[in-house]
Simulated assay, not measured.
Amino acid sequence: MKQTILNIQNLKCGGCANTIITRMETLEGVTEVIVNNDTHTVGFKYNTDNQLETAIALLSTLGYPVEGASNPLTKKAKSFVSCAVGRIKS
């Protein structure tokens, strides 16, 4: 099993973290998801490079693209929605 820590954009609070953890744990082969709001990182374990790519794509879809990736206003808006959903469910 491989492990990674990704620097992500638009991470603001526990609501964001809750959404990221909840959604990433639904991915096959992705486990032990940890979000650090202070360092703007998400760490997790995975088995294949395809699972890593799927996780990165999901983060972007939720509004949390990896550092250095495109971060248009639409991604920032999605992160606010994900944040609100995470706050409601926490």
Score class of each variant (00 low, 15 high):
2 K>R: 12
2 K>V: 08
3 Q>F: 11
4 T>C: 15
7 N>G: 12
11 L>A: 07
11 L>P: 12
13 C>V: 07
13 C>Q: 05
13 C>F: 01
14 G>K: 01
14 G>D: 08
14 G>R: 02
15 G>F: 04
15 G>W: 00
16 C>Y: 02
17 A>L: 05
17 A>G: 13
17 A>Q: 10
17 A>M: 05
18 N>L: 00
19 T>G: 01
20 I>P: 11
21 I>A: 07
21 I>F: 00
21 I>K: 06
22 T>F: 02
22 T>I: 04
23 R>T: 14
23 R>W: 03
25 E>G: 04
26 T>H: 07
26 T>F: 05
27 L>V: 02
29 G>M: 03
29 G>L: 05
32 E>Q: 11
32 E>V: 00
33 V>D: 07
34 I>E: 12
35 V>W: 02
38 D>Q: 10
38 D>W: 00
39 T>E: 15
39 T>F: 10
40 H>T: 06
40 H>V: 01
42 V>K: 02
43 G>D: 04
44 F>T: 04
45 K>I: 10
48 T>K: 02
48 T>H: 07
49 D>M: 03
50 N>Y: 00
51 Q>Y: 01
52 L>D: 06
52 L>G: 08
53 E>D: 13
53 E>V: 10
53 E>N: 14
54 T>D: 11
56 I>Q: 09
57 A>N: 12
58 L>Q: 06
60 S>F: 04
60 S>Q: 11
64 Y>P: 08
65 P>C: 11
65 P>Y: 06
65 P>M: 07
66 V>N: 08
67 E>W: 00
68 G>R: 05
68 G>Y: 06
70 S>W: 07
70 S>A: 14
71 N>I: 05
71 N>C: 14
72 P>C: 10
74 T>Q: 10
75 K>V: 13
80 F>P: 02
80 F>S: 08
80 F>D: 13
81 V>C: 03
82 S>M: 12
83 C>R: 05
86 G>V: 03
86 G>N: 04
87 R>H: 15
87 R>A: 10
90 S>R: 05
